[in-house]
Design a protein around this nucleic acid. Structure first.
Lengths: 210, 210
DNA sequence: TGCATTCTTGCATGATGTGCATTTTTACGC
DNA sequence: GCGTAAAAATGCACATCATGCAAGAATGCA
């Protein structure tokens, strides 16, 4: 379980990935998302275009730094452990940000990415589809907590599944809104606060709609 | 204000649109969404591929029958009028289904479309992006109602905008879930019930999370 | 060193989508 | 009907994205 020495192969892979992300972000910022072509990105990263798709599913994914739509069981467990006792909403949001980390919320590319998001908010749509693709994983992850919440417990499996999806949509929307707010308002708050902000947004909304 | 005679031009346009939708749905059902190519669809519809894009933005849009991402002011007013006194949630959901009508919820293609959705649930992701693209319009539409709701009223404009987006995400997710449920469970309920179901889903979720 | 695995690359291919100029079709006043 | 203007359809060129496949290069490991 030790993080042993990376090894040349893994190091190179990380390096290539980083070069691709950096190139994608830099060019998207300089030329605009649509004018930053795959060819240009790959040339800047000194990588063949064919290889690009060994790392990302699409250009947008590279710009946002999204990894393959999957979260490891260890990551899930770690989140569950760190926030034991949290309610479904908090858990869902934390899981989502776990996926984005370090994609969006960290690394030297953070500021540049936020500028891009500010200019191209539609990119955040990728987050939604990312979360939707992870739908099964996420529902599975919050299932126990949701199940122990009053009300949900007595749902039929179908109703339960449906309810979980709605909860996730709500949290995903709040996460997106929080990131967008943070990107738009000049990043005054520390990035860590975005997560809390998303949770607060959900709570506020629920409170008011009730 | 009378719906006067359509005129040849409009009739032909509607006809072509219908041919394209029918071809798209038929081929997607027969060959699968990914194997139903633009060329095949256009050939079946007896329309040039170039013309296709005068009607739809993408293949998926044609399969789902989504119109251009805009809702006319008349449609908005009509919904607002018909459901005067409704709360923001109901209003948002009704507006969304207004967009889908007759796209998904009506017409002879309904059953086929639901079969396709059942086999390719990821298509429903288009709904989310559609709603997101309409974000400004939708927020504008529910703004007055949201503004008269306690709690929202006192937000700063920024907070208000953010809250509106979260509400819309919630409603959009519920709409998607309701459609998916309906498509998956064999269409036992009448299609009109889907809308109510979506509203109920939102309310249930809010209730439980509070 | 030698072998197996993984990664990279080039090439071919297909599909989506857009701009532009041309032609065809429709609308409408005369 | 006729001619003109507007709208729509079309053909064509072109760019981009994305994937499959096979050959070659780099790495890991014994």
């Amino acid at each position: 379980m030790q993080t042993s020495e990376p090894g040349l192969r893994e190091r190179k892979r990380a390096e290539t990935r980083d070069k691709l992300e950096t190139a994608a972000v830099t060019l998207a910022l300089r030329d605009g998302v649509e004018h930053a072509t795959l060819d240009a990105i790959c040339e800047a990263a000194d990588v063949s275009t064919r290889t690009f798709f060994n790392y990302f599913d699409s250009k947008e994914d590279a710009i946002l730094g999204l990894k393959d739509s999957a979260i490891s069981d260890e990551e899930v467990s770690s989140v569950l452990e760190e926030h034991a006792g949290a309610d479904p909403v908090e858990l869902a949001v934390r899981l989502m940000f776990q996926v984005l980390n370090p994609s969006i919320t960290s690394s030297k590319l953070l500021k540049s990415r936020m500028k891009i998001v500010k200019q191209h908010p539609e990119l955040l749509g990728r987050l939604a589809s990312q979360f939707q693709r992870m739908g099964e994983q996420l529902t599975a992850a919050i299932r126990p907590v949701l199940n122990s919440a009053p009300g949900f417990r007595d749902d039929t499996p179908e109703d339960f599944q449906l309810s979980a999806e709605v909860v996730l949509a709500l949290c995903s929307g709040a996460a997106r809104a929080a990131v967008k707010e943070w990107a738009t308002t000049g990043n005054k708050a520390p990035i860590e606060a975005v997560e809390e902000r998303a949770i607060a947004l959900v709570r506020k909304t629920v409170e008011r709609l009730k």
